[in-house]
Write a protein that binds this DNA or RNA. Sequence first.
DNA 1: GCCAACGTTGGC
DNA 2: GCCAACGTTGGC
Length: 154
Amino acid sequence: MTTHYWLFKSEPSTFSITDLENRPKQTEPWNGVRNYQARNMLRDQIKVGDLAFFYHSNCTPPGIVGIVKIVKAGYPDDSAWDAASPYFDPASPPNRPRWFMVDVKFVRKIEPMITLTDIKNHPLLSGMQVAKRGNRLSITPVTVEEWRAIEMLR
DNA sequence: GCCAACGTTGGC
DNA sequence: GCCAACGTTGGC
């Protein structure tokens, strides 16, 4: 089976690559995605063994800070039916889940980080979705060429 | 803190 | 089904 590549955004003040590294099993459910396009990828396309860049957004500077591996494929996001969760969504009850998540496992940090500026300035990376103006998708596909180009950098 | 870009909502 | 209003994202 072919490995596919992704980029997962997270605000480090909410959940950082270091938070993931420090989890007892270095594993975490990637919950809280509330966008249909990203949901479809989580539910239908992202498979066990796929790899993803961990991207820190809404911080200074934004950029790629590590690599994670998918260890559990799409399953219902239970934070949607937890009234105490910031991701609570009564429109996604357990018997009819609307939102999905995957489990990710820490692979390694990328140090120093590859900043958004680095990405925009790199001929093989400047076309990445995350570098596009107005891009807000928290999960985006990464091509094998882009993946290799970034691995070559560090 | 600003604000452009985007997705969602809801009135009609 | 249209589209204006609104809330959110996220770079700067």
